[in-house]
């Protein structure tokens, strides 16, 4: 009993220590967004002495397109998340569970495409989008990104661990492959799907390089691109930069907090019946 107590104290100490290391920089960044510039520049105060919301109202008022960018980001990210979840899971499932000719080849190809750094494919991808006439459009960002090799790979690894008996039972009941997949497999994969949703959301929301090159029209900017442009112009205005950065980070954090409940132990199996 005593030993158990020591272990748990140790575990808590490590967890809390790690949490502090992680939390302090963010707290500092977020708190800075509530300070006037003079306070940030003049030295290290941690808690704002002159608390102000002015930085946020200023970001909004200086960037009249803020809500337009937000809308663009929401549309693009929503499509990306929905399409990716379905398509990546389908491919991951096929690679893990369906014995089709060429399966090994496709799996290898999906791993291989991950290994080429995007710096050399950027220009050819750009030329392809131009050929389709998709520069400066939503689909230019969405369609090329609607499947993601990383998460196909992840889903495959998840499905490898999946109870096979359930699917067999379903097929005995006369469900097709598609039926089995959508009605049996997907609901059981909630934790993995939730993780995937969070990651796709984040990568789409924070994506900077692709919108930077594809979107040349200010109306079509995503929030991240717009706020980065903003940051470039207000380079010495740390207060506004911190406010803009906080605004950029917040949606991802909320989404994560929402999906977090799917990772909690027990949801999968108790929810299954």
């Amino acid at each position: 009993m005593n030993k158990k107590r020591i272990t748990s104290i140790l575990v808590y100490t490590i967890l809390i220590g790690y949490a502090v290391i992680t939390f302090i920089p963010f707290l500092w960044a977020v708190l800075s967004s509530f300070k006037p510039l003079s306070e940030i520049v003049s030295g290290i105060t941690f808690i704002p002495e002159n608390f102000t919301l002015g930085n946020y109202t200023e970001v909004f008022s200086r960037e009249p397109l803020f809500f337009r960018w937000m809308l663009n980001s929401v549309i693009i990210t929503a499509c990306m998340v929905a399409l990716n979840i379905v398509f990546n899971s389908m491919a991951g499932y096929a690679l893990a569970r369906i014995r089709f000719a060429g399966r090994k080849f496709w799996f290898f190809l999906i791993l291989a495409v991950l290994m080429i750094p995007f710096q050399v494919t950027l220009i050819p991808s750009y030329l392809i989008l131009k050929t389709f006439g998709w520069l400066n459009t939503y689909q230019g960002l969405i369609i090329p990104g609607m499947v993601n090799a990383t998460f196909i790979f992840m889903m495959r690894q998840f499905f490898l661990n999946f109870p096979k008996e359930l699917e067999e039972a379903a097929q005995m009941d006369g469900l097709s492959r598609f039926g089995t997949f959508f009605r049996i497999v997907m609901p059981l994969a909630k934790p993995a799907l939730a993780a995937q949703a969070v990651f796709i959301f984040m990568s789409s929301w924070n994506d900077f390089m692709r919108p930077l090159i594809i979107m040349s029209d200010k109306d079509m900017f995503t929030l991240t691109l717009g706020l980065n442009t903003f940051k470039g112009q207000y380079i010495s205005y740390w207060n506004l930069i911190m406010a803009a950065s906080t605004l950029m980070t917040l949606p991802s954090l909320l989404i994560y907090a929402f999906f977090n409940r799917f990772f909690i132990k027990g949801v999968t199996f108790t929810g299954g019946k």
Partner: peptide, 17 residues
């Protein structure tokens, strides 16, 4: 999402450069 995908692919007129 399938519908949305095809709709997006279909109507590319939104913001012609």
């Amino acid at each position: 999402s399938l519908l949305l995908g095809s709709a997006l692919a279909g109507c590319s007129n939104s913001e012609e450069s």
